[in-house]
Amino acid sequence: MLLSSGDWTAIWLTLKLATSVTILLLILGTPLAWWLARTSSWLKAPISAIVAMPLILPPTVLGFYLLIFLSPNGALGHFLTNIGISPLPFSFTGLIFASIIYSLPFVIQPLQNAFVAMGNRPLEVAATLRASAWDRFIHVALPMAKPGYLSAAVLGFAHTVGEFGVVLMMGGNIEGETRVLSVQIYDHVEALEYAQAHTLSLLMVLFAFVVLAFLYATQKVNKQKANIGSW
């Protein structure tokens, strides 16, 4: 049961996609999660709903609208084409864009929970110790939210690895560009190459198990720490 070069390309592409998406989501998700955790604005409910929508929408619906929206004739696609950016659908960049939206709730929610759990007190304490807002965020909020960042990174990465519907709608099936693992497995099955589909599927099952086991193990440790913590 050896992997073909096409399989290897798909694995490599999937890892590249998931890594880029995770890094981008952690950067973009931090201010959004921070805002959601602290705001009392009426906008909180609608924004939270938008962030959580990928949780319940069929990925095909999401992919369909992204395709329309980003196609050269779509609202954003037209603008992007005008400023000289090549169309996003059926490209790796387009896949990153779609995955960011698709995996957003999986990154926002652990971060938001971590910021909420921390409460306001550590930041107040830091302020009375002459720490400016930026200093408080870097030296108090970030280190205290570390478990949240770990969960967010793991979930965001794993969820991106596992996506299928959005990829198929938005990215199509171009080897080396948009043919990620889940699409590769689908291709194998379509071509009745069950052995190869088995190999890749088993890899995915193992990956999912290891990731989740790791996540639950670290969450347990963090909870124990929190129980005897000083807050």
């Binding site: 550590p122 107040e124 304490v125 205290m144 720490k225 000083s230």
Partner: peptide
């Protein structure tokens, strides 16, 4: 230029 001692010990846990 203040120092503030809170009701519950407010040490940074990390």
């Amino acid at each position: 230029p203040i120092g503030y001692v809170f009701q519950e010990a407010s040490l940074f846990p990390h």
